[in-house]
């Protein structure tokens, strides 16, 4: 659906995107992560034909010209934007009429369907300037869904929504994905991406540093976490296989929690909880990224210092 090859964008002396090779497949729920200023938005803008690449190429829905396929793409880029003096419904009507396929026939039904999908059918006739932040966000989503796109490119789609709203939108996106829509979600909310996405790409300083399925990134580390009130006994029993002890929590080098549990219980060690240790997405992302460009001054994190001294 999206494939980029050595995509580069320079703004004057600043290299915003530096040789990115994205690979988003049909049916993916792709999470595009990275600190502020890492080049996420610039990449998205290039894919949508808003910003012209300095070098490199990309393919969107199999086409090298974004313009040809954009009618099948719904997008939310850096927050929604509307004509404040017009109603939500009127805004969507204008959006529908402005581009290809926006014939008058069926327009009303399309607008109604989009408003209903995002839960705004009751507020469609109010002027957008009277909308709350969450309502604007929903209307932005409605505009992206208006043309029943094959690909959704969403930048922070849950911005300004309350927890129920976030849940609602997540369910909506999961439903659309099950029906065949590919979702490309650009975000810095790791929890959001963990709950929604199945593949992840991480951008750092314009470079794609990780691109893998979430299952691989969250694969067990080969260690088992054991929660036990009898930490001392357990340590004695397991010996050098215990890598760390933190109060009542042990980290054991063992990739078979079931066998470990049986062994502990046979020895009379009470086990409160036990399971394979998994890397969190946060660990992965923090490991490969540096502080965002919005951080100015103050002590830098290790990775930054290393790079400076190298």
């Amino acid at each position: 659906m999206i494939r980029t090859h050595a995509l580069v964008k320079r703004f004057g002396p600043v290299t915003a995107v530096d040789g990115v090779d994205l690979d988003v497949r049909e049916g993916d729920r792709y999470g595009f992560l990275g600190p502020n200023g890492s080049g996420k938005t610039t990449t998205v803008r290039m894919l949508l034909g808003l910003v012209l690449p300095t070098s490199g190429s990309f393919e969107l829905l199999g086409s090298r010209r974004a313009q040809d396929v954009l009618a099948q793409v719904g997008a939310l880029v850096e927050g929604p934007a509307f004509y404040g003096h017009l109603s939500g419904r009127r805004n969507l009507t204008l959006t529908d009429a402005a581009g290809p396929g926006g014939v008058r026939r069926g327009r009303r039904a399309r607008v109604d369907a989009a408003l209903e999908q995002v839960g705004l059918d009751g507020a469609g006739s109010r002027p957008v300037k009277a909308y709350s932040l969450g309502m604007r966000q929903r209307l932005g989503l409605a505009a992206a869904l208006l043309r029943q796109p094959r690909l959704l490119v969403l930048d922070e789609p849950t911005n300004g929504l309350d927890p129920q709203g976030i849940r609602e939108i997540r369910d909506l996106l999961l439903g659309l994905n099950r029906a065949g829509t590919t979702v490309f979600l650009s975000s810095h909310l790791l929890a959001e991406v963990e709950l929604l996405c199945d593949r992840v790409g991480v951008l750092n300083r314009g470079r794609l540093v990780v691109q893998d399925s979430l299952a691989v990134l969250q694969a067990p580390t080969g260690r088992t976490q054991v929660d036990t009130p009898d930490a001392f006994q357990a340590t004695q029993l397991l010996g050098s296989r215990v890598e760390a002890v933190d109060g009542m929590r042990l980290l054991v080098r063992d990739d078979d929690p079931a066998a470990l549990n049986a062994m502990l219980v046979r020895a009379g060690v009470r086990v409160r909880a036990l399971g394979p240790e998994r890397r969190t997405l946060e660990d992965t992302v923090l490991q490969v990224t540096t502080a965002g460009s919005d951080r100015v001054g103050g002590p830098q994190r290790d990775a930054d210092v290393e790079e400076l001294s190298a």
């Binding site: 803008r45 949508l48 034909g49 808003l50 974004a66 313009q67 954009l70 009618a71 793409v73 997008a75 880029v77 850096e78 927050g79 929604p80 934007a81 509307f82 004509y83 404040g84 959006t95 402005a98 581009g99 290809p100 505009a143």
Partner: peptide, 14 residues
Amino acid sequence: QAGTLRYLLIRPVG
């Protein structure tokens, strides 16, 4: 300024 230019262009309007 209103941000609507990007949405017009990705609708897409040439």
